[in-house]
Simulated scan of single mutants.
Amino acid sequence: MCVTKPLVSIIMPCFNASLFITKAIESVIQQTYSNWELIIIDDCSLDRSLEVIGNYDDNRISTYMLSVNSGSPAAPRNLGIKKAKGDYIAFLDADDSWYPEKIELQLNRMLRKQADFSCTSYNLIKEGKVVSCYKPPKSATYDDLLINNSVGCLTAMVRTDFVKKHMFPVCGHEDFALWLKVIKDCGYVLGIQECLANYNVVEGSVSSSKHKLIPYFWHIYRNEENMSIADSLYYCARYFFNVVFFKYR
């Protein structure tokens, strides 16, 4: 009996990514798991991004364009989610890349563990060199995630119905806000210890300095999670303590 493999929808926002999007796309094409669709959302690029994307003749790749630049990855990702036809959704930014076995290993682990939400370990890349490998906890609950966003967006894979139910809010650090909503529905996130992706750290970006995320976390605690001022202060302090003393990511 032939069993149909689940379709994995990969959402890739793109803005002025002509210098590095080839590597990202190639890392998808080279996956050992073949039943995927790659949905690229161009956010009004001013460079040759669309020309580079157009060089690929693969019916699993589709491209959509926003009419106005959104200024954040939330809108392109949400459009990609709306277009997604897969059973699972994964995310890959145009300047990052995956190992060839990423989808196959991650999906098989999720199916075996009956997990609806997972993430993996990933390399942090600076100036083309691996500087460290971040490993998430083997399992994290909502309470765990509140004090340590252990889900790297480029490694996340989520059952589609959970993502379409919530989508990315436009709030700054939108992925963390979405993970909190998803994990309340599915119970936990499975942390796969194998390093399966490469994340490019851009110097000066908010994500390159974890203490800069605290104002975004405050907003998420207060406005997305509707926490009290006291609880929001508590979780911001816990997050800061973890970053400074335990050096999470």
Score class of each variant (00 low, 15 high):
residue 69 N to F: 07
residue 80 G to E: 10
residue 79 L to Q: 07
residue 75 A to T: 15
residue 81 I to C: 04
residue 77 R to L: 01
residue 58 D to H: 13
residue 79 L to H: 05
residue 69 N to S: 10
residue 74 A to C: 11
residue 56 Y to G: 04
residue 57 D to H: 14
residue 62 S to D: 01
residue 57 D to W: 09
residue 72 S to V: 07
residue 68 V to E: 14
residue 57 D to C: 09
residue 71 G to I: 11
residue 76 P to S: 05
residue 83 K to N: 01
residue 81 I to W: 10
residue 57 D to Q: 14
residue 68 V to L: 03
residue 81 I to D: 03
residue 69 N to T: 05
residue 58 D to E: 14
residue 55 N to T: 12
residue 72 S to G: 12
residue 56 Y to W: 09
residue 75 A to R: 12
residue 87 D to A: 05
residue 80 G to M: 07
residue 58 D to K: 08
residue 80 G to R: 09
residue 76 P to K: 06
residue 61 I to P: 02
residue 68 V to M: 04
residue 60 R to K: 12
residue 59 N to H: 13
residue 63 T to N: 08
residue 82 K to E: 15
residue 79 L to M: 11
residue 73 P to F: 05
residue 75 A to E: 14
residue 73 P to H: 02
residue 77 R to T: 00
residue 74 A to P: 12
residue 68 V to W: 00
residue 66 L to G: 13
residue 65 M to N: 15
residue 79 L to R: 08
residue 79 L to S: 00
residue 70 S to E: 07
residue 81 I to R: 05
residue 78 N to S: 02
residue 54 G to W: 06
residue 67 S to N: 14
residue 59 N to S: 14
residue 59 N to L: 07
residue 58 D to S: 08
residue 73 P to I: 11
residue 64 Y to T: 01
residue 54 G to T: 04
residue 63 T to R: 10
residue 79 L to T: 06
residue 69 N to M: 06
residue 75 A to H: 09
residue 54 G to E: 05
residue 84 A to K: 07
residue 60 R to C: 00
residue 76 P to L: 04
residue 70 S to L: 03
residue 78 N to E: 02
residue 67 S to W: 04
residue 85 K to H: 12
residue 57 D to P: 02
residue 72 S to R: 09
residue 78 N to T: 05
residue 64 Y to V: 01
residue 67 S to C: 11
residue 56 Y to T: 08
residue 69 N to W: 05
residue 77 R to V: 00
residue 56 Y to R: 08
residue 62 S to R: 14
